[in-house]
Design a protein around this nucleic acid. Structure first.
Lengths: 254, 254
DNA sequence: CAAGACGAATAACATAGATGAGTTACCGCT
DNA sequence: AGCGGTAACTCATCTATGTTATTCGTCTTG
C-alpha cells in the first residue's frame, strides 16, 4: 500500500518499486495508541513513514488547548520539514497502534538521488500537504460545525480510498469524538450533537468504528466540500515538468 | 529588501546576490489594490514574487464566504506549488497596489541550478510557509477573537521586521477591518470590537494605517503567541544539512 | 467478578460571536 | 462645493457553540 500511495503521485518504474521494497527491510517500529511519536520542540531524527494505523499532527497551546492540524494515514510520511528545519513545530501522536518506519536522512538522500521519481513523489506529497493545510484553515475559519465535520469525513474517505483502505462507501474510523473535536476546533459535546444530526439526515451512519457514507455526493454538497485541493485527479495525468520548475529535481531527469 | 529576505534563510554569496540583482531586470508588473493577481482554478504561469505592497492568498466557498489563508509581504513569493500542481487551489489578490515580478519556471530552474543557495532559500521559505499554515489552523481552531487578532498582529510585526519594514514598535498596516475578519474567521463587526478592546487595554494603538505595539511581550502573552513556528532564530544558525536530507539539493553543495 | 477507566450520549445553562441595520467620517472626483 | 463610495464604528437581537455535569455501556485488568 506504501507503493500504491507513492505511485499515486508519480509513475514509478519497476526499479523504483524494487528500491522501495528494499526499504521495507528497515525495522518497523511500533507506537501504541495514544502515545506520542515525536513531540513539539524536539530535534527530529528522521522522516516517519506510516505503515499501518492512524497518527495525527497536533499543536498545543500553553494552556493545554490542542489542535489537530492533520492526519497521517498509512503511506503518508511526516513532512520532510523536520530534516530541514531545526525543531519540530508540532507533535506527532499515534491515534491507534501505529507501525511506522524511521527513514534516516541519508537513506532518503540516496533513494531520491538514484530514483528521481520517488523524490518527485515525496515532493508532490509535500505540496499537497500544504494545499490540504490551507483547506483546513478555510474549514475552521468559514464553515459551521456540520460542514466542518462533513468536510473532514469526505476528505478522509477520499484519502483512504486512494490507499485502498475504503471499499466504496464504508471505512474504519478509529477516532474518538474528542479527536474529531480537536481536529475541527469544536467540543466533543458538539461533535456528538453534530454526528447525530448527520445521522438523522441520513448523510452518514456510524456504528462502532465503521463509518458509512451512503451518498457521497449528498454529504459533499451539504458540507460544501470541494475535493480539488487534494489534487487527486492529476496524479495519473502528471506531465514531465515535475519539479524542474522548482529547481529541485532538474538533475534528476537526466 | 528582496535580497535581505532570501538572505534570512541562507547565507548568500556575492555571486548569488549578483544573480538576484540581475533578475531584478525582469519587468515589474503592477496590480492595483483589490484586484486579483491569479484566481483559484487557473493554470499558473509562473512564480510571483512580491516586490512591494501586500497581497493575500485566499479561498472562496461556493456561497461566497472567503478565507484569507496567508499574507504575502514584500520579498515573499507564492508557493512553488503552482509550478508543480496543475491548478491553483487558491487565489492571490492584491490588498494594496502591488509591484511584483513573474518569474518563469525556466528562470527559477536556472537560478537554482547555478546558485544552489538561492534554491535552498526558496525551499526553506516554502517549508516555513507550511509551518505558518499549521499555526493559522491552530489559531482559527483554538484561539478566541482577541488571541487570534493579537497573534496575527504579532506575526506580521515579526515578518515585517525581518524585511526591514518595521522600525521597532510601529508598522504600516494596510488592511481593512474586513480583511482582518477574513483572515481570522471573524466578522468585521467583531474585529472592530476586538480592536477596541486591544486599544483599551493598551496593547496596541492604531491610528490611520499605523499600528503601534508599545509592549510586544505583553501582546504576545495576552495572545498566547509563540513565535517558534516562524523558524526565525535558526536562519543565521543554519547548518550544512540544508536540503540534503530531503534528497533535493544534495547536488547543490558540491 | 469487581473495579476502574474510557467513550458515547444527554441535559440545563451560559456566552462569544454572528446578524442585520444602521450612522458617521473620510477621501477622491467632477 | 457637492456627490458617491468606502471604511470605521454602534446598537439590539439572536444563535451556534461552549461549559459543566451526569448517566450508561463496554472494555480492560487485576
Amino acid at each position: 500500500m506504501l507503493i500504491r500511495r507513492l505511485g499515486n503521485y508519480a509513475r514509478l518504474t519497476p526499479e523504483d518499486e524494487a528500491a522501495l521494497q528494499q526499504m521495507l527491510a528497515l525495522p518497523i517500529r511500533l507506537a501504541h495508541a495514544r502515545r506520542d511519536i515525536i513531540a513539539e520542540g524536539a530535534v527530529p531524527r528522521a522522516v516517519f513513514l506510516i505503515v499501518s494505523g492512524w497518527a495525527c499532527q497536533f499543536k498545543t497551546l500553553e494552556d493545554g488547548r490542542r489542535q489537530i492540524v492533520g492526519f497521517l494515514l498509512p503511506g503518508d510520511s511526516c513532512d520532510l520539514n523536520n530534516l530541514v528545519l531545526r525543531r519540530m513545530d508540532h507533535s506527532i501522536g499515534a491515534l491507534t497502534d501505529v507501525r511506522y518506519m524511521e527513514i534516516p536522512g541519508e537513506a532518503i538522500q540516496r533513494l531520491t538521488r538514484d530514483h528521481p521519481r520517488i523524490g518527485k513523489a515525496l515532493w508532490w506529497q509535500m505540496l499537497v500537504h500544504l494545499s490540504v493545510q490551507r483547506e483546513w484553515t478555510t474549514n475552521l475559519g468559514q464553515r459551521n460545525a456540520m460542514e466542518r465535520l462533513g468536510s473532514l469525513l469526505c476528505e478522509l474517505a477520499l484519502r483512504l480510498r486512494d490507499v485502498g483502505l475504503s471499499n466504496g462507501e464504508c471505512y474504519d474510523l478509529p477516532l474518538t469524538q474528542t479527536d474529531l473535536a480537536d481536529a475541527t476546533g469544536l467540543t466533543s459535546v458538539h461533535i456528538n450533537r453534530t454526528l447525530q444530526q448527520l445521522r438523522a439526515s441520513g448523510l452518514i451512519s456510524l456504528s462502532g468504528r465503521v463509518l458509512r457514507i451512503p451518498n457521497f455526493a449528498a454529504l459533499q454538497e451539504a458540507s460544501l466540500f470541494a475535493p480539488d485541493y487534494l489534487h487527486r485527479a492529476q496524479r495519473e495525468a502528471r506531465q514531465s515538468h515535475g519539479l524542474a520548475g522548482a529547481g529541485v529535481a532538474d538533475h534528476a531527469d537526466q
